[in-house]
Amino acid sequence: MKVCFVCSHLWPHSYGGAERRYYILAKELMKRGHDVVYVTYDYGESEIPLATVGPPPRLYDEKGRRRLLPALEFGWKTAKLVEKLKCDVVDVTVPYTTALFMKPRSFVLTYHEYWGKYWEHYFSKPLGTLAAIAEKRLLRKAVLVITPSKLVANRILSEVGTVKVAPVPIGLNPDDYAKYRGRSRDIDVTMIGRFTYTKGWWRLIEVLRQVDKPLRVAVVGDGPLYNEVTAQLEKLHHEVHSYRKASEEEKLELLARSKYYLNLSDAEGFSIATLEAILCGATPIVLDTGLNAAVEIVEETGCGYIAKNLREIAEQVAKETSTCTPNISGYTIQTFVNNYLRFLGELQTMRVNA
């Protein structure tokens, strides 16, 4: 089977969850004998066969929002390129605009978060309203919508209606993280993510203000709010270390040394960092906003805490952690790839019988 993945980002040239998911999946499919082509910008060399549409432009504005015109241009160019590649399956993800220029039911959509009315906060009216309408139409246009969590799948079914949706959480190889476990826990709290409003950095500042006990804190990531947030963190009575350009190895080392990992996002379709924290032996604390699918990871692995408010988090991080043996049967690479292929197999059967 020839599978074409379409994404504007490419791991490890960038470090988002969408490209990380595709990178893992593409490599595993190739091991199983499938042909894979990754359609993206020209970032440079990759272990995955690439089809590119030129160098990447500036993708985000000064507020960290996706720039619309480059996203639309990427969609149009990649749709034309995919048509020439003659793929058995076209799997489209971020920024999803490729699907706008493809025929209905000719593609799979891997959809990481359903935003709905949140688009009006992201872009403001009337553009945000139009984006919310386009989101529903795009989802209905796909032959299959793959989501990284049950939460996203249920939101789509509730808000969009008659769409074929398949939740397929990402999987990781526990053996890759075994060497990190057992480190000395000399960091009290770590938080990782892009420095944007939706990732909850202001919540971290508020949590730390409520903790009287001096803590050692590590923050990892980059983004438009980096300077503003780190300046506020440095004013606190805690020892805060910022890692703006941490490598994957450095990030995992920090998680292995951490007592707690915080996920304070407004919304998460999934959270690879939360799963990696568990595999590295850190205890995750996830804020339950109603839109944060990292809650599912805590529930299903049996490790970590789910908090309803910031006070609960502040009280917990002041305490010592306890060890936990996670149940990761639902988050292995084998489970991930098997579930993905199962749904693609059902899709191919539907096409043959149509």
Results as ranks from 00 to 15, higher is better:
V219G: 04
M350R: 02
L264A: 03
Y15R: 14
Y177V: 09
W76K: 15
R155A: 08
L172I: 11
E113A: 12
I187E: 00
Y243F: 15
C324P: 01
T78F: 14
A231W: 03
G330C: 05
R183S: 13
T40Y: 07
G116K: 02
G221V: 12
R183W: 08
T325Y: 03
A282D: 06
S242T: 15
Q210W: 06
L208H: 09
M191A: 05
S184H: 11
V160S: 02
V89R: 01
H238V: 07
E248C: 07
L29P: 07
P326C: 04
K117V: 12
I285N: 09
S184N: 13
N339F: 06
W115Y: 14
F107I: 06
P70T: 10
P55C: 03
R155G: 00
R351E: 03
K213S: 02
L208Q: 08
R58Y: 11
A267L: 14
Y15S: 12
E249A: 14
E276Y: 07
A293R: 01
V36H: 02
L208Y: 07
L72F: 07
Y60V: 13
A246L: 10
L81D: 01
L100E: 12
Q348A: 14
S8G: 12
M191G: 05
H238C: 08
I24R: 08
L287T: 12
Q210D: 08
W76Y: 15
L29H: 02
R181A: 04
M102K: 03
P95L: 11
V298M: 07
R194F: 04
L236T: 14
L262F: 05
Y38N: 03
